[in-house]
Design a binder for these strands. Structure first.
Ligand code: MN
Ligand code: MN
Ligand code: ZN
Ligand code: ZN
Lengths: 148, 148
DNA sequence: AATCAAAATGAGATCCATTTTTATTTTCTT
DNA sequence: AAGAAAATAAAAATGGATCTCATTTTGATT
């Protein structure tokens, strides 16, 4: 499960960025810290709203840029949360991660993890003629509240 | 595996549409037939390109409209094929379906199916407090050709 | 076959998340 | 401190998707 306000992840991410040759920069750091505060997927727009009002303000382009770099380094995971908009959430260094069940009615997102599922995916990844590095599983349906 | 040029699916879809109360219409029928011709995901833009040049031409809006209706009825499955663009492919009435491995470099999409994976998902769907009706699995990485 | 309300359609306008551009500021090495 | 490279922000551009609305088609009813 995602730990709330994971500052350990923030440090991990900042370290990895430096390691990858990126210089330190205020905007990118702000994005990392914001991501560390969220325990599930956030959209770039939401992050932009949070960071726009800062002193100094963080630009929208910088948010997208940082997210892309972080995704590239495997520090965040990108997924489509609603039609046409992507959500981002941090990836824990240990490799532990979760997937999501998304309510088609209200949009609520419920995270889950399942070792059996992961095992099936791991096995499958070996079998197919494809060098699999990531995977994504989305369950869709109705959440508790919306189920008639 | 997806059967090539599945006209049985087209008839099935057309029947389901009528059944759902839709009148018959040239544009929608053209979209159904186009989908039947593709054995893996196609984007709305690709369908639009195919159908625009017809006599009479099918409008972009009609393509999107038909796709949404078909998805609503569970006749097609929507998925994000590349950043920001959705792909659609037919859903076989029997419930058999496949998932995709997508190359992050060249975009190639390789379909696969795996009973063990499906079983893991089915079990999981029972366990969580969510009325799961659909699922989607995407493996990402490098295809044979692009793997260094 | 003629009528007509409802449904379907297509062209273009519009929306909006994301990307690109560009001028300016910051970082960091020398 | 100086300079080259990297980072940033604001604005413009892009492009897939959606909306609008005038026109055409459908299918039930006469
Ligand atoms: Mn997993
Ligand atoms: Mn499946
Ligand atoms: Zn819900
Ligand atoms: Zn490839």
């Amino acid at each position: 499960m995602p730990a709330r306000a994971d500052s350990a992840w923030a440090e991990h991410a900042l370290r990895a960025l430096r390691q990858a040759g990126y210089r330190r920069g205020g905007a990118r750091t702000a994005v990392v810290e914001a991501l560390a505060r969220h325990d599930c997927a956030v959209t770039a727009i939401e992050l932009d709203d949070e960071l726009r009002r800062r002193r100094p303000a963080v630009g929208r382009a910088s948010v997208y840029r940082a997210l892309e770099q972080l995704e590239q380094l495997g520090l965040v995971q990108r997924m489509e949360v609603t039609r046409g908009t992507a959500g981002y959430e941090r990836v824990e260094p240990g490799g532990e991660h979760h997937h999501h069940a998304i309510c088609r009615k209200c949009g609520r997102m419920v995270p889950f993890e399942d070792p059996k599922l992961e095992r099936a995916i791991a096995r499958l990844s070996e079998e197919i003629s494809f060098e699999v590095t990531d995977h994504d599983v989305v369950l869709r349906g109705l959440c508790e509240r919306c189920a008639d």
